[in-house]
């Protein structure tokens, strides 16, 4: 336990250690571990099917691991006293029921965390959905759905953001928005962990890189360390994973 924390310390250290996940006799995660720290954007990179989503789902308590731990500030997610205020998660799609309006979706999440309805309006404005708040989620575009998911994650102004493929399906404007937004979150001392299989899109956004392939971590370090002698992150990625030298 940390006994002395610097002033304004928000917490939000993600520590993953020895995670093993098997599904239907197939090993999806073979004992992976890494750390994501406050004030930095950590890119969790790997080809499709490498185990990125499984790792994030275990970290959020949605899936169970056969072995290992995934902790936020030393605590498993389900044991966090106030999860919505500690961690925000953006997983597949919007995470909302299609026949509810965007605002109604955010309102029930806010209720579950004891947050005021005014916070709902704040996050709607923050992600640029204020005008679509009265529309049913079923009528949202993919990009709008992703914005709603981001708004949901931001409701509790959490110290940690966890995003699974946040750039998928976004138009260039949306990609720019998310990138700038995540950089700002990290600059304000928060932890950002995002998974992606899009290397080119990520190099400008991440500080630290964790590369996963076939359920194993094949590289970790700062962007410069992982890129190493390669021309760029993309080249390094293909050299490290099954996309390249195997």
């Amino acid at each position: 336990m940390r006994s002395r924390r610097p002033a304004g310390w928000l917490g939000g250290v993600i520590t993953i250690d020895g995670l093993v996940k098997r599904r239907g006799g197939k090993e999806i995660l073979a004992g992976i571990g890494f750390e994501a720290r406050p004030g930095r954007v950590t890119g969790f990179l790997g080809p499709n099917g490498a185990g990125k989503s499984s790792t994030l789902r275990i970290l959020l308590g949605l899936d169970r691991a056969q072995a290992g731990t995934a902790l936020v500030d030393g605590v498993p997610y389900p044991a966090l006293p106030d999860p919505v205020r500690t961690v925000g998660a953006v997983l597949d799609g919007s995470g909302a029921h299609r026949s509810r309006t965007g605002r109604a979706h955010l309102r029930w999440v806010a209720r579950s965390a004891g947050l005021p309805p005014s916070r709902v309006e704040e996050v709607l404005a923050l992600v640029g959905l204020a005008d679509a708040a009265r529309k049913r989620v079923g009528g949202y575009s993919l990009g709008m759905g992703r914005r709603l998911a981001l708004a949901t994650a931001l409701l509790g102004d959490p110290a940690v953001l966890i995003l699974d493929e946040p750039l998928n399906g976004l138009d260039p404007e949306g990609i720019r928005f998310v990138r700038t937004f995540l950089r700002d979150r990290a600059r304000s001392g928060r932890t950002v962990l995002l998974s992606s299989h899009l290397m080119g899109e990520l190099a400008e956004t991440v500080d630290d890189v964790v590369v996963i392939d076939h359920g194993r971590i094949v590289a970790t370090g700062t962007l410069a360390e992982v890129t190493g002698a390669h021309r760029n992150l993309e080249d390094a990625f293909f050299a490290l994973t099954s996309g390249g030298g195997r």
């Binding site: 959020l60 949605l62 997610y77 998660a89 997983l91 597949d92 799609g93 995470g95 992703r146």
Partner: peptide, 12 residues
């Protein structure tokens, strides 16, 4: 639309 489900939001 991304293939999400509300359950992930509920359980987070």
């Amino acid at each position: 639309a991304g293939g999400g489900r509300q359950l992930t939001t509920s359980l987070t």
